[in-house]
Amino acid sequence: MTLRRRLIPYLFLAPALVLLAIFVVYPIIAVVGYSFTDYDIVRPPVFVGLANYEKLVDDPTFWLSIQHSLVYLLVTPILIVLSIGLAIVVNRAMRGIHIFRALYFVPAVSGSIAIGLAWTWLFDRNGFINSVLLSWGLIHTPIQWLANPSMVLPIAMLLTIWAGVGYYSVIFLAGLQNIPEELYDAARIDGCNSFQKHRYVSIPGLRPQITFVAVISSLAALKVFDEIYVLTGRTGGILDSGVTIVFYLWKQAFVLSHAGYASAIAMALLAMTLVFSIVNVRFLERGDAEA
């Protein structure tokens, strides 16, 4: 009976732990192993030592993909600023405000492939953007937006920002509504105008939310794939102009069947996420202490 009692917590945890062991822990160990092999998924892996890593260091596309992923991280500060702004805008009692809040959330639930296709059409040579720019006389010939190497990444980032603002602003809105009204009253008495009110009360009050959004949106930015896949028609863009680290991993592993080499890329991805994971753990630890 006592043994059974002692086993109880583990019985509750067993399904989750077994699934995690199979689908997270084992694959991580295996991918480390594969990174030292020549492997095409079909034939058994052949040990090659550090060959994949040596190749990686001299692979300009790999470095380009790292560079693109780092540039992509710029979406994080932009998302934070815009989402806080939107949260402040919708944090007021107005008739129909719930409808607006729901509308802003729509891109977040619509699915990356659907919104990616919608944007592909907007930025197509025959798309809406060119139509408008031509009619305003800002351009004289249609621009090939997505065939332009310098435009692919900015358009993908714009898409990520457009789709994310409504989502993250819900988090900030919940944070704003937890800030006691007295703090705003005190700020008003001290002579703050409405901008200063947000600068000195809202922003400090939103610190946990800012940390949270910074971590999850930067991890999401490092993992970006779907947007690039759709906007570039699964090519990664002319001259690899839209290739991010996850896109390159996917291309090496599942298009070119270089699973061993792709596993080495996965290690680089792991190293990059480790930097952000430190922030992540710190944050969650703090949240746990507060609870």
Partner: peptide, 10 residues
């Protein structure tokens, strides 16, 4: 912390 994409090959 671990991105799911890391585990896709295994």
């Amino acid at each position: 912390i671990v991105p799911a994409q890391l585990t896709f090959i295994p």
